[in-house]
Simulated scan of single mutants.
Amino acid sequence: MTPRTAEAAQVEEANQAFYDAVETSDLDALEEIVLTGPLAETVSVVHPGWPVLRGRGEVMRSYALIMANTEYIQFFLTDVEVAVDGDTALVTCTENILTGGPAEEDGSAGTLVGALVVATNVFRRTPEGWRLWVHHGSPVLADGDDDDEDAAGPGA
Protein backbone atom coordinates (compact mmCIF):
# COMPACT_ATOMS: atom_id res chain seq x y z
CA MET A 1 0.00 0.00 0.00
CA THR A 2 1.47 3.36 -0.97
CA PRO A 3 1.55 6.20 1.59
CA ARG A 4 -1.12 8.06 -0.41
CA THR A 5 -3.39 5.01 -0.35
CA ALA A 6 -2.73 4.53 3.38
CA GLU A 7 -3.72 8.16 4.01
CA ALA A 8 -6.92 7.76 2.01
CA ALA A 9 -7.75 4.61 3.98
CA GLN A 10 -7.23 6.49 7.27
CA VAL A 11 -9.52 9.28 6.10
CA GLU A 12 -12.16 6.78 5.01
CA GLU A 13 -11.96 5.15 8.48
CA ALA A 14 -12.42 8.57 10.12
CA ASN A 15 -15.38 9.25 7.82
CA GLN A 16 -16.99 5.93 8.78
CA ALA A 17 -16.34 6.63 12.47
CA PHE A 18 -18.27 9.90 12.07
CA TYR A 19 -21.30 8.11 10.63
CA ASP A 20 -21.03 5.32 13.22
CA ALA A 21 -21.10 7.89 16.04
CA VAL A 22 -24.23 9.55 14.65
CA GLU A 23 -25.88 6.18 13.96
CA THR A 24 -25.32 4.99 17.54
CA SER A 25 -26.10 8.39 19.11
CA ASP A 26 -22.65 8.36 20.69
CA LEU A 27 -21.98 12.02 21.39
CA ASP A 28 -18.71 11.18 23.19
CA ALA A 29 -17.41 9.38 20.08
CA LEU A 30 -18.51 12.33 17.94
CA GLU A 31 -16.63 14.70 20.30
CA GLU A 32 -13.47 12.71 19.47
CA ILE A 33 -14.04 13.02 15.70
CA VAL A 34 -14.88 16.72 15.37
CA LEU A 35 -11.90 19.08 15.06
CA THR A 36 -10.70 20.92 18.18
CA GLY A 37 -7.89 23.38 18.78
CA PRO A 38 -7.16 26.65 16.98
CA LEU A 39 -9.55 25.84 14.13
CA ALA A 40 -12.48 24.80 16.36
CA GLU A 41 -14.41 27.99 15.61
CA THR A 42 -14.12 27.31 11.87
CA VAL A 43 -15.86 23.90 12.15
CA SER A 44 -19.13 24.03 10.21
CA VAL A 45 -22.05 21.84 9.30
CA VAL A 46 -25.01 22.07 6.95
CA HIS A 47 -27.66 19.51 7.79
CA PRO A 48 -30.20 18.96 4.99
CA GLY A 49 -32.70 21.81 5.13
CA TRP A 50 -30.81 23.73 7.85
CA PRO A 51 -28.79 26.93 7.59
CA VAL A 52 -25.03 26.72 8.00
CA LEU A 53 -23.91 26.27 11.60
CA ARG A 54 -20.46 27.57 12.54
CA GLY A 55 -18.21 26.87 15.48
CA ARG A 56 -17.57 23.56 17.20
CA GLY A 57 -19.98 24.30 20.06
CA GLU A 58 -22.89 25.08 17.74
CA VAL A 59 -22.13 22.04 15.59
CA MET A 60 -21.99 19.72 18.60
CA ARG A 61 -25.27 21.15 19.95
CA SER A 62 -26.94 20.41 16.63
CA TYR A 63 -25.82 16.79 16.74
CA ALA A 64 -26.96 16.47 20.36
CA LEU A 65 -30.42 17.69 19.29
CA ILE A 66 -30.52 15.31 16.34
CA MET A 67 -29.46 12.37 18.50
CA ALA A 68 -32.00 13.21 21.22
CA ASN A 69 -34.84 13.41 18.71
CA THR A 70 -34.03 10.52 16.39
CA GLU A 71 -35.29 7.13 17.45
CA TYR A 72 -33.47 5.19 14.72
CA ILE A 73 -31.05 6.12 11.94
CA GLN A 74 -28.79 4.04 9.74
CA PHE A 75 -26.43 5.18 7.00
CA PHE A 76 -25.47 3.09 3.99
CA LEU A 77 -22.66 5.00 2.27
CA THR A 78 -22.18 4.66 -1.47
CA ASP A 79 -20.13 6.49 -4.10
CA VAL A 80 -17.43 7.24 -1.51
CA GLU A 81 -14.52 9.19 -2.99
CA VAL A 82 -11.51 10.34 -0.97
CA ALA A 83 -8.91 12.93 -1.96
CA VAL A 84 -5.98 13.85 0.27
CA ASP A 85 -3.80 16.93 -0.18
CA GLY A 86 -1.32 17.54 2.61
CA ASP A 87 -3.15 18.00 5.89
CA THR A 88 -6.59 18.31 4.30
CA ALA A 89 -8.83 15.57 2.93
CA LEU A 90 -12.10 15.70 1.05
CA VAL A 91 -14.69 12.93 1.12
CA THR A 92 -17.76 12.93 -1.07
CA CYS A 93 -20.41 10.26 -0.72
CA THR A 94 -24.07 9.44 -0.95
CA GLU A 95 -25.80 8.82 2.35
CA ASN A 96 -28.56 6.27 1.83
CA ILE A 97 -30.43 6.93 5.07
CA LEU A 98 -32.98 4.74 6.78
CA THR A 99 -34.69 6.44 9.71
CA GLY A 100 -37.68 5.66 11.83
CA GLY A 101 -39.90 6.68 14.66
CA PRO A 102 -40.61 4.97 17.96
CA ALA A 103 -41.60 1.32 18.12
CA GLU A 104 -45.28 0.50 17.88
CA GLU A 105 -47.23 -0.46 21.02
CA ASP A 106 -47.07 -4.13 19.99
CA GLY A 107 -43.26 -3.93 19.94
CA SER A 108 -42.92 -3.94 16.16
CA ALA A 109 -40.69 -1.44 14.40
CA GLY A 110 -42.03 2.05 13.87
CA THR A 111 -42.49 3.59 10.45
CA LEU A 112 -39.26 3.58 8.45
CA VAL A 113 -38.42 6.26 5.90
CA GLY A 114 -35.61 6.26 3.37
CA ALA A 115 -33.78 9.31 2.05
CA LEU A 116 -30.82 10.14 -0.14
CA VAL A 117 -28.36 12.85 0.83
CA VAL A 118 -25.16 13.75 -0.98
CA ALA A 119 -22.47 14.77 1.46
CA THR A 120 -19.14 16.52 1.42
CA ASN A 121 -16.93 15.99 4.45
CA VAL A 122 -13.66 17.83 4.93
CA PHE A 123 -11.10 16.40 7.35
CA ARG A 124 -8.00 17.99 8.83
CA ARG A 125 -4.92 16.03 9.89
CA THR A 126 -4.03 16.59 13.56
CA PRO A 127 -1.48 14.93 15.86
CA GLU A 128 -4.41 12.76 17.08
CA GLY A 129 -5.41 11.72 13.54
CA TRP A 130 -7.92 12.92 10.96
CA ARG A 131 -10.68 15.12 12.41
CA LEU A 132 -13.92 16.33 10.83
CA TRP A 133 -13.72 20.00 9.91
CA VAL A 134 -16.77 20.48 7.66
CA HIS A 135 -19.87 18.40 6.93
CA HIS A 136 -22.35 19.49 4.26
CA GLY A 137 -25.35 17.31 3.48
CA SER A 138 -27.77 18.13 0.69
CA PRO A 139 -30.93 16.14 -0.01
CA VAL A 140 -31.30 14.49 -3.39
CA LEU A 141 -34.67 15.71 -4.62
CA ALA A 142 -34.66 14.42 -8.20
CA ASP A 143 -34.53 10.89 -9.54
CA GLY A 144 -31.24 10.46 -11.39
CA ASP A 145 -32.94 8.27 -14.06
CA ASP A 146 -34.88 11.15 -15.67
CA ASP A 147 -33.84 12.10 -19.17
CA ASP A 148 -32.99 15.73 -19.96
CA GLU A 149 -36.47 16.62 -21.19
CA ASP A 150 -38.16 15.26 -18.06
CA ALA A 151 -35.62 16.97 -15.81
CA ALA A 152 -36.18 20.31 -17.53
CA GLY A 153 -39.93 20.07 -16.97
CA PRO A 154 -42.83 20.52 -19.37
CA GLY A 155 -42.45 22.95 -22.21
CA ALA A 156 -38.67 23.10 -21.96
Rank of each mutant, 00 (worst) to 15 (best):
T120H: 05
T120M: 01
T120L: 02
T120W: 00
N121A: 10
N121L: 08
N121R: 04
N121V: 01
N121M: 06
N121W: 01
N121C: 05
V122F: 11
V122K: 10
V122S: 06
V122C: 10
V122D: 05
V122Y: 13
F123E: 06
F123S: 00
F123L: 12
F123D: 08
F123P: 03
R124Q: 13
R124T: 14
R124C: 09
R124H: 11
R125F: 04
R125W: 02
R125E: 09
R125D: 09
T126G: 11
T126P: 10
P127Q: 00
P127C: 01
P127W: 00
E128G: 08
E128K: 00
G129T: 04
G129W: 07
G129Y: 03
G129N: 05
G129S: 03
W130P: 10
W130E: 07
W130V: 02
W130F: 06
W130K: 00
R131L: 02
R131W: 07
R131S: 07
R131N: 05
R131P: 05
R131M: 07
L132T: 02
L132I: 03
L132S: 07
L132W: 10
L132P: 12
L132K: 04
W133S: 08
W133F: 15
W133P: 03
W133L: 08
W133D: 08
W133N: 08
W133R: 04
W133Q: 07
V134A: 11
V134G: 09
V134E: 15
V134D: 13
V134I: 12
H135G: 08
H135V: 06
H135Y: 15
H136T: 12
H136P: 06
H136Q: 15
H136V: 13
G137C: 08
G137W: 07
G137T: 01
G137V: 00
S138F: 01
S138Q: 09
S138Y: 03
S138G: 13
S138A: 14
P139M: 02
P139V: 08
P139N: 06
P139C: 00
P139Y: 02
P139R: 04
P139T: 09
V140C: 05
L141G: 06
L141R: 07
L141K: 05
L141Q: 11
A142Y: 14
A142G: 09
A142H: 13
A142L: 15
D143T: 07
D143E: 10
D143L: 11
D143F: 10
D143I: 09
D143N: 14
D143P: 10
D143M: 11
G144S: 12
G144Y: 15
G144P: 14
G144C: 12
G144R: 13
G144E: 15
G144N: 12
G144Q: 14
G144D: 12
D145K: 15
D145L: 14
D145T: 15
D145Y: 11
D145A: 15
D145V: 11
D145H: 12
D146A: 12
D146K: 15
D146V: 14
D146H: 14
D147E: 06
D147R: 02
D147K: 03
D147I: 01
D147C: 04
D147F: 01
D147V: 00
D147M: 00
D148W: 15
D148H: 11
D148T: 02
E149I: 05
D150M: 12
D150Q: 15
D150L: 13
D150V: 14
D150T: 15
A151H: 10
A151Q: 12
A151D: 11
A152P: 09
A152W: 13
A152F: 13
A152Y: 10
G153W: 09
G153L: 05
G153K: 00
G153A: 02
